[in-house]
Amino acid sequence: MSVDSTVVLETRELVTGYGELEILHGVSVSVCSGEMVAVIGPNGAGKSTLLKGIFGLLPVQSGAVLLGGADVTGKPPDRLVQNGLSYVPQVENVFPSLTIQENLEMGAFIRRNGVRERIDEVFRLFPDLAKRKGENTGKLSGGQRQMLALARGLMLDPKILLLDEPSAGLSPKLVSAIFERINVVNKAGTAVLLVEQNAREALSLCRRGYVLAMGRNRLEGEASNLLNNEEVGRLYLGA
């Protein structure tokens, strides 16, 4: 892994939520360049909220988000995208009435040139999509849709990719397929912050991990240590 110690993304005591309802009560995570980091935790721990807070989709009440060392707290998504951050939500993550190719073009909206070349590059990573590039996205199966969502997120060649439960609702075979894709993407140098319900698979893929509970940091450390941690095992791995 080409991981160095430069931090590309960091949250400091992030407090956010929906309107009056505070969900995150101060969460700090960091991702180094080229690193793949898992965020696991029970339902309602605030995992998805963390990603939305980072991406400026929820109002940040306090704390900070740093991207490449610069404070980007509360910046609009198009600014974040420009600075190499990309986010793939868990659901509704494709444009159903657009074709596959058009979906990818939308992923590169802010890019002025080289879009066609980038699409070809991304298609090389997802050959199944290339075959159906003119088709409407509405017809895709769940697995293909996740692949397309991932592909869309890669269109700007981001420095860091935020993934919200890419395996949700997929069959075990598809889960390993999508994790394998994510691994390839990461090996190519993109840092990944992976939010997962599938804690065991996520941790076995990642270098480090964070465990959230009740909107707070619970544990963090090397993924292998977390996998062997008794508390994690008991609570989240079903061991």
Binding site: F55, L57, P76, P77, D78, L80, V81, Q82, Y87, P89, E92, N93, V94, F95, M106, G107, F109, I110, R152, L156
Partner: peptide
């Protein structure tokens, strides 16, 4: 929302 996320202005 996805349009916003994709960086569409």
């Amino acid at each position: 929302e996805l349009a916003l996320i994709s960086g569409i202005r």
